[in-house]
Computed example of a mutant assay.
Amino acid sequence: MKKIAAFVVLSGIAFMLVNCSGSEKKTETKNGDIKLPVFTLTDSSSYDFGTIQEGEIVEHVFYFKNDGPYPLILNNITSSCGCTTPEWPREPISPNAASSIKVRFNSKGKSGPQVKTVTVYANTDPAYSELRLRGIVNAAPKPEAAK
């Protein structure tokens, strides 16, 4: 009886695996056209702001285009820390239209090498893309003690 039960379970698992691997991708039609928007950066996904003094604010604009046949929706954008603030369009981006994401990094309380990641979540495949700000923050001079 145990052998029969094991055979039934293994047959069910094998059937599910074959069934899943044989299905077409939902993001493509039979002729291979992509059925999702395509988030394409028109410049680099990384920006090196060089060397700045602690307390300075750096802003950079990442430009992108929707290279897909359907409207692109940026669902959410998160940053690796509270010192980095993204601004993005809330309305759908039409096919072949361009737009931008502005990222602001506040270096107050930061010093040394910095790499800040901004993750863009959208109705694309893959479902997210990463943008990076990097550079070096020189520490602010320490105030001299009163004599």
Score class of each variant (00 low, 15 high):
I57R: 08
Q53M: 08
T84L: 14
T85N: 09
A122R: 00
Q114M: 14
S111V: 07
A127T: 05
G50S: 02
D43I: 04
L74V: 11
E28A: 14
L74M: 06
S44E: 14
Y63L: 08
G109P: 08
I136V: 14
A140H: 07
N138L: 14
E144I: 09
G112P: 02
F105L: 13
S79G: 09
I52E: 10
L72G: 00
F15Y: 13
T119Y: 03
V38I: 15
P141E: 09
I34E: 14
S23Q: 15
I52A: 04
I77K: 00
Q53S: 14
I73D: 00
P86A: 08
Y63P: 03
T51Y: 08
P92D: 02
S94I: 05
V120S: 06
T29Y: 05
T78K: 08
L133P: 00
P92A: 09
G68S: 03
Y70E: 03
N106F: 08
I77F: 00
F39S: 05
V58S: 00
M1R: 09
L41C: 06
E56P: 01
G82N: 14
L10E: 07
G55A: 12
A140T: 04
G68N: 06
Y70V: 02
Y63A: 12
S99V: 00
K26L: 12
I73P: 00
I52R: 13
E54F: 05
F7K: 15
K102P: 01
I34D: 13
A97Y: 14
H60I: 06
G135N: 04
I4D: 00
K30D: 09
S80F: 11
G12K: 13
K2N: 13
K116S: 15
K116N: 11
I77W: 02
S94T: 04
F105K: 04
K2G: 12
R134G: 11
A139H: 04
L72H: 05
K26E: 09
L133F: 05
A140R: 11
P69I: 03
L131I: 06
F49R: 04
E59I: 09
S45V: 05
